[in-house]
Amino acid sequence: MKTSAELDAFAARLGHDFKEPEYLIRAVTHPSIASETRPDNQRQEFLGDRVLGLVIAEALLQADAGAAEGQLAPRFNALVRKETCAAVARDIDIGVVLRLGRSEMMSGGRRKEALLADAMEAVIAAVYQDAGFEAARDVVLRLWASRIDTVEGDARDAKTSLQEWAQARGLAPPSYEAVSRTGPDHAPVFTVEARLSTGEAERASANSKRAAEQASAKALLARVEAG
């Protein structure tokens, strides 16, 4: 099965030469354009999530032989969460090769975080199906390398840290209020305010409510820790 020049260029960015290109074609086919003769990438997404998890777990164990499970778990979660998968997908520009239905395309599907993350997992599965676990591991470790190196800082959950700070001082847990949602449906911007019972508050914006909560918690924690 032949691939387009765009898919060939994407495979080069991915760093894998597909012996069976149909695996890659399926991995970039969204359910919005699937048919009986054109299967979508959902089953590959399921598989790729597990392959990614195994590779990352193994990499974390090798990177820090003395780390306890309680230290490894947040690092693992930071590396496999949807936001990280979407960021890696953007790094290699998956969006340009996604095969989408017209409505999904018109609504900005090539930039949607959840869609990019799912496609990234499906592509990992495609490499695994095409050439086995070693090839998939090589791709993941190359694409995630810088994130693995810096994961300890990324793994610190700001909401948990802020709550622990408040509890240590006998305060109620912080509250989070969604202040606004702006932007088009395909690229929303959420603004959230984190507030302590003592009145201190900080606002932050991000392209998901969860990320905005984390960002506002991080800003408020930095403020109160600074004194």
Rank of each mutant, 00 (worst) to 15 (best):
S4C: 14
A5F: 03
D8S: 15
A11M: 04
A11Q: 02
G15C: 11
L24C: 10
L24R: 11
P31W: 12
S32R: 12
T37N: 14
D40T: 07
Q44D: 00
E45T: 00
F46L: 01
G53E: 01
L54W: 01
E58W: 03
L61W: 08
A63P: 01
A63E: 02
A63W: 02
G66D: 11
E69A: 08
G70P: 05
F76L: 01
N77H: 07
A78L: 06
A78N: 06
L79C: 02
E83G: 10
C85G: 03
C85D: 01
C85N: 02
C85F: 00
D91N: 08
V96S: 15
E104K: 09
M106T: 14
G109R: 09
R111G: 04
K112R: 15
E113Q: 14
A114K: 15
A117Y: 10
A119L: 05
E121N: 09
E121I: 00
A125I: 00
A126N: 07
A126E: 06
Y128G: 00
Q129G: 02
A131W: 01
E134H: 14
A136F: 01
A145S: 13
A145W: 06
I148D: 13
D154M: 14
R156K: 14
R156I: 15
K159E: 12
T160V: 15
Q167E: 12
G170P: 08
L171G: 03
P174E: 01
S175V: 12
E177T: 15
S180K: 04
S180L: 02
T182K: 04
P184N: 13
A187S: 13
F190G: 12
E193V: 12
A201D: 09
E213R: 04
E213F: 05
A215H: 12
K218G: 08
K218I: 01
L220S: 06
L221T: 13
E225A: 05
